[in-house]
Nucleic acid binder design. Structure first.
Length: 515
RNA sequence: GGGCCGUUAGCUCAGCGGUUAGAGCAUCUGCCUUUUAAGCAGGGGGUCCUGGGUUCGAGACCCAGACGGCCCA
């Protein structure tokens, strides 16, 4: 354990001491410094929405009662003009100005205003009007103190540019940066839309275990925890897949779950150890049906949330207009393997173990031994190296090797090819879906092959889940399933280049000592 | 795990081996009744990320470490 952090306030005694003293002076006025409640008629955004469209005369023409507002907010700017003070109030989205005249408020309120600091919460009661410069304002008749900020906020002009602090102290970021709030409001609307989309199509939202005795449903390392009463280790789930399919066995023919997955792996601009996954399962459907549903979901969500299927993505634009391109994994490698040393990749260069190894070497793939002479893994690696970095526009990559798809059913015409796809947008993997393997004997065989891979050193290979095979043995109808990474989808919709910009509190290494 | 970059006042940032480390905002004092990055005058505020080293002298150079960012694995 690290040493307990010293009181961080020692590092900024002057500003904190000033603010504590100001709080004492406010208390001396006889007003509560942390009142329990305050009667709100309008938030700042409401004031802006109500009066923003009106010019000065239009506002003044309103009956007095309609101009009256009781609006709370955090003070983000103070301009003292002698016997008048302007306060910028923020609700995190918008700002409105309060105009406090010495001769228009009670004596105690005027004294209070003199003791306010940037970051304090106050409530202002008064009439909306426009100043002679046209600024929408509230002419204070009363002003109530709601809470003190004992620490200074970031620079009022530059805001919080230190990305580390933005992630570690998201509340500070949110307090001063409306554009940060907008990202998370957009994310919330996206998730809400997804629920409406699936609910409207007869899907049932369910919740399956986050703590699992056997982590399954994906190729990833799990987090381990321990249940004391049962004295067993449990794993935070890496995917809900195997439980959702048990529900399909039970007769829920359309189910979905939106919840957290946990993978004990690296952190990057596209990876957070806990991330949010949508998984949905449709009985009687195959991969083609899921792809069509996905196109409909993405393009309708874009229209609903952004008003367009065209998404700005840095300097580029992504079109979510359906249909999305379909491209086989092999064709993707050929298409994007034209400039390899030794000439472009030919289809024959992807046939057979030795040819694949030679092609990998030409593509600069190192450490071939980690693929354990599995041709499908080599092909997938070539795809990731050569093709994935180019898949800006939505592309369903299809025809995955069956041997790297142990939970998927093969295509009827080719047992070596899984009826599976992954969707790439913005050079990121956004979705992974397939027709679910529902033959319990074949599933058992695939699990055995996975266990063999694991003993050969692949610690991401799956474990044998006997209970799941037993569930399948009761009979699962033909079913297609899919997982969609909500965080990455939120990145696309908000034009965010880092997953940490769409996760409120991304995982950070703990600070060694007090800041 | 590797490479590159960053860490200086509360915030945003300057700082070329050489006085007592600076600016803007914030803060404090004073003035100012429609201002708005308000303005004017004056003041205070520093573990230059940490620990070693080189040097007469280190915020700067060297080594190690911490934390973060980007890229790669």
């Amino acid at each position: 354990m690290s040493e307990p952090a010293p009181p961080a306030e020692e590092s900024l005694p002057e500003q904190i001491a000033n603010r504590r003293a100001a709080r004492e002076r406010i208390a001396a006025l006889g007003v509560p410094t942390y009142p329990n409640r305050w009667d709100v008629t309008h938030l700042v955004s409401d004031v802006v929405a109500r009066f923003g469209p009106l010019d000065a005369q239009a506002i003044e023409a309103l009956p007095e009662a309609e101009r009256q507002v009781s609006v709370p907010g955090r003070i983000l700017a103070i301009r003292k003009m002698g016997k008048a003070i302007f306060l910028d109030l923020s609700d995190g989205r918008r700002r409105v100005q309060a105009y406090v005249r010495r001769d228009a408020v009670p004596e105690a309120a005027w004294e209070l205003v003199g003791h306010l600091d940037l970051g304090d919460h106050v409530g202002v009661r008064g009439a909306a009007f426009r100043t002679r410069t046209g600024e929408l304002s509230v002419k204070a008749e009363r002003i109530d103190f709601l809470a003190k900020s004992l620490r200074p906020l970031p620079d009022k002009w530059h805001g919080l540019t230190d990305v580390e602090r933005r992630y570690r102290q998201r509340y500070v970021d949110l307090a001063v940066a409306p554009e940060t709030r907008e990202v998370f409001e957009l994310r919330a609307r996206l998730v809400s839309y997804i629920r409406r989309f699936f609910d409207a199509r007869g899907f049932l939202e369910v919740e399956t275990p986050m703590m699992q005795v056997l982590p399954g449903g994906a190729a990833a390392r799990p987090f381990v925890t321990h249940h004391n009463a049962l004295d067993i280790d449990l794993y935070l789930r890496i995917a809900p897949e195997l439980f959702l399919k048990r529900l399909v066995v039970g007769g829920f023919t359309k189910v979905y779950e939106i919840n957290r997955n946990f993978r004990n792996e690296g952190i990057s601009t596209q990876h957070n150890p806990e991330f949010t996954m949508l998984e949905f399962y449709t009985a009687y459907a195959d991969a083609r049906d899921q792809m069509a549903l996905t196109e409909e979901l993405f393009s309708s969500a874009a229209i609903e949330l952004l008003g367009s299927t065209r998404l700005p993505w840095g300097e580029e634009t992504i079109s979510l207009e359906a249909p999305f391109r379909r491209l086989s994994m092999r064709d993707a490698v050929v298409e994007h393997g034209r400039d390899l040393p030794g000439g472009p990749v030919a289809p024959g260069d992807l046939e057979g173990l030795e040819a694949l190894k030679r092609t990998c070497a030409r593509a600069g793939v190192e450490g071939l031994e980690r693929f354990g002479d599995v041709p499908g893994k080599l092909l997938a690696e070539l795809f990731e190296t050569l093709a994935e970095p180019h898949l800006l526009q939505p592309t369903f990559v299809v025809d995955y090797p069956a041997e790297i798809s142990p939970l998927a059913k093969a295509k009827p015409e080719d047992p070596a090819i899984a009826d599976r796809f992954e969707l790439f947008i913005g050079r990121m993997e956004v979705a992974n879906g397939f027709c679910e393997l529902n033959d319990p004997d074949e599933q058992a065989e695939k699990f055995r092959a996975q266990v063999a891979e694991r003993t050969k050193g692949d610690d991401e290979a799956m474990l044998f889940d006997e209970d799941y095979v037993e569930a399948l043995s009761y009979g699962m109808p033909p079913t297609a399933g899919e997982g969609i990474g909500i965080d990455r989808l939120a990145m696309l919709f908000s034009n965010s280049r880092s997953i940490r910009d769409v996760i409120l509190f991304p995982l950070m290494r703990p600070r060694g000592s007090g800041r």
